[in-house]
């Protein structure tokens, strides 16, 4: 076990945490696991690819010479903005008509939307892998036994900053208060004059924007994009959301990092062949003792509608 592995775990956990937040936020309000979320992350990565190509093209053409840092921020912000519309569209098309339907129908619809996004991408862009262009030049720092790149540090720091910003938004703004209120009593809040649809749409938008950010950061570290890239990481982030506690924001973040750490540590300490088996047995064990997850409350698992 080395300090290097701690960095590896932090970076890997950042992706789980960012994606798990999207699951948890939607769940806390609608009691619905948005199973298309992993694929929203995939779409986010592709949007990031197109935005990056466009921005780099403009920068290279000399019309608007941009330093790499500005390019990166521009790509990140634009991608988050555009990906939030994907989430909003999914909500409008797939979930809103089913809001009063049984939850199982909505969950299955989510799976279908996911398949639609994957195969739609396959049909539009073909099955070839795409590379994500380097936005910032990779710099490797070596400190004794530890080797980290600037991108690794950037990923960890930005993920934490985004989570902090989300927390501020939920705790300090009026809309954030409405979200919290809806997670406690879905039925009563609209009676207080809170525009329910707007809060729900915003929840989807925020979750998807975070998935978009995860898409860009993920593609910078693992620059091979494919239509099914969101599948496995989406499922695992879902596990992280459950582990942290359904509907809990802090839980999603911690669940993500814990899952990332468990995966890395199991591979580091035991044989890597058994990584997933051991890692997910640990998750099962935790859930046996804490069935509502680490930070979940009993009411968050009870049907409120």
């Amino acid at each position: 076990m080395s300090i290097q592995q701690i960095f590896n775990g932090l970076q890997w956990g950042s992706f789980y945490a960012l994606i798990a937040l999207g699951y948890s936020m939607v769940y806390s309000i609608l009691m619905l696991f948005n199973f298309a979320h992993g694929d929203v992350f995939m779409v986010g990565a592709y949007i990031g690819l197109f935005v990056a190509t466009a921005v780099l093209g403009i920068a290279a053409s000399g019309l608007l010479p941009l330093p790499p840092a500005v390019t990166f921020v521009l790509v990140l912000v634009l991608t988050m903005f555009l990906t939030s519309f994907v989430g909003m569209a999914v909500e409008r098309v797939a979930y809103r008509p089913l809001r009063d339907a049984p939850r199982a129908s909505a969950a299955i619809t989510g799976l279908m939307v996911g398949i639609f996004l994957e195969t739609g991408n396959l049909a539009l862009l073909g099955a070839s892998r795409r590379t994500f262009p380097p936005l910032i030049e990779t710099v490797t720092y070596t400190l004794g036994p530890i080797t980290v790149t600037n991108i690794k540090i950037l990923t960890i720091v930005l993920a934490l900053l985004l989570m902090l910003a989300l927390n501020l938004f939920i705790q300090k703004t009026k809309t954030g208060m409405a979200m919290r209120a809806m997670s406690v009593d879905y039925a009563a809040v609209p009676l207080m004059g809170v525009p329910m649809d707007r809060v729900i749409v915003l929840t989807f938008a925020l979750g998807s924007a975070l998935a978009g950010a995860a898409g860009v950061l993920f593609s910078m570290t693992y620059p091979v994009l494919e239509p099914y890239m969101g599948l496995l990481i989406g499922w695992k982030a879902f596990v992280a959301a459950i582990l942290g506690g359904r509907g809990s924001i802090l839980g999603a973040v911690l669940g993500g990092f814990i899952l990332g750490f468990i995966e890395i540590l199991v591979a580091a300490l035991f044989v890597s062949t058994l990584r997933d088996l051991i890692a997910y047995s640990i998750v099962l064990l935790i859930l046996t003792f804490r069935p509502y997850g680490l930070f979940g409350e009993e009411y968050s698992a009870r049907l409120r509608i």
Partner: peptide, 14 residues
């Protein structure tokens, strides 16, 4: 080793 579809190999490579 790792499993198909894995994208992060940092633990093994370390």
């Amino acid at each position: 080793s790792f499993t198909t579809k894995d994208r992060d190999f940092s633990a093994q490579l370390t």
